[in-house]
Design a protein around this nucleic acid. Sequence first.
RNA 1: GGGGAAGUCGCAUAGUGGCAAUUGCAACAGACUGUAAAUCUGUCCUCUUCGGAGUUCAGUGGUUCGAGUCCACUCUUCCCCA
Length: 379
Amino acid sequence: MNNLTFDILAHDPKSSARVGVLHTDHGDIPTPIFMPVGTAGSVKAVHQHELRDEIDAKIILGNTYHLYLRPGMEILRAAGGLHRFNGWERPLLTDSGGFQVFSLAENRKITDEGCTFRSHIDGSKHLFTPENVMDIQRVIGADIIMAFDECAPGESDHRYAKRAMELTHRWLDRCISRFEQTEPLYGHHQALFPIVQGCKYADLRRISAEYIASKNPEGCAIGGLAVGEPTETMYDMIEVVNAILPADRPRYLMGVGTPANLLESIERGVDMFDCVMPTRNGRNGLLFTSHGTINIKNKKWESCFDPIDPESNALCDRAYTLAYLHHLIRAEEILGLQICSIHNLAFYLRLMDEARKHIADGTFTDWKSRIIPELSIRL
RNA sequence: GGGGAAGUCGCAUAGUGGCAAUUGCAACAGACUGUAAAUCUGUCCUCUUCGGAGUUCAGUGGUUCGAGUCCACUCUUCCCCA
């Protein structure tokens, strides 16, 4: 059982971008990396073997809130943790449920103690506290676990944002305390990442980043972005925060984002990302390609017999045509959702591969500037 | 040959005197950022300066201030009896 270690292999000469490797007990993670979201113990519509062999995902997410409600802690403990339960042998990261405190706002009540909420499944009442969220994440057993935080809405005023940030800091102290009093249950190390908050206010972001940095964490997360604020504001906040967070620790930008968001954030020193966009948008028929996004439901793909993406290593991208995928989605065939999800995830992971290569070569900023306009142009 | 039922905007439906007309499907677009999402939204007769305007409910004629709705005939479809 080893602590999380992070080796930085190269810095981009013209920006804050860097290439590294994160070492966990379940394997190494090259950075920058994109982590597919597997909320309820499954990356929706994608098999584990497809994640491993076709997409080559290095790490995937699970969600404390969802897994706690279903299947529940008893089952996960009996299964021997999430790795054993879902058959994923590579690294896992669990979100703390803090985001659900934000996204399920109508069903919850926040106090200093924690957050009471009603289950979206059966309406039953529950309480999350920093302490029990740590306990739950011990049972789930992810390699990286997240502090319990309050993610304030993007349009929050300064007063509310400050209160949410301060609550997040108080909760962090309690998370760390509980984390240090408990042991991993399955023989592998777990790293706790604290989360910077502070909304769109640079003064709060600085305070929060300094507070998080003072805890000497194994890695740091930036939360509360891409929640309604302008994209430029998000980039500004990343710069403010990354100037303060320890440079030798991995930085994880939570819940972001579009391919362009990832590249802009990498340039500003971010190492890790997760987002539902490739999977959710994929299920809804949107494909990310190196020539822009396409809506596979549109009539214009009806008789386009080109491969989905000839440059991709994913089998489905070369084996199937756009016209066939269009047909599958139109006919509501489940295979269509699977192919779209695999394609988009493979695209995101390949984008990260290329980013790492260009950072190592010292060509990142030029490549980024050239490729971003192409990502948003529609065919 | 006789008797009965029915024809509504692609399809299927609602509507029985104030209606450009209900709903579903299909179609055409759009949205989606730490997943209550295989979801949601818009358009869906024509034109529009988005205020409206013009043509519609098988066809023709009629009753009425006003007809998808009532009446007559015609056409078409389905069912039953010969």
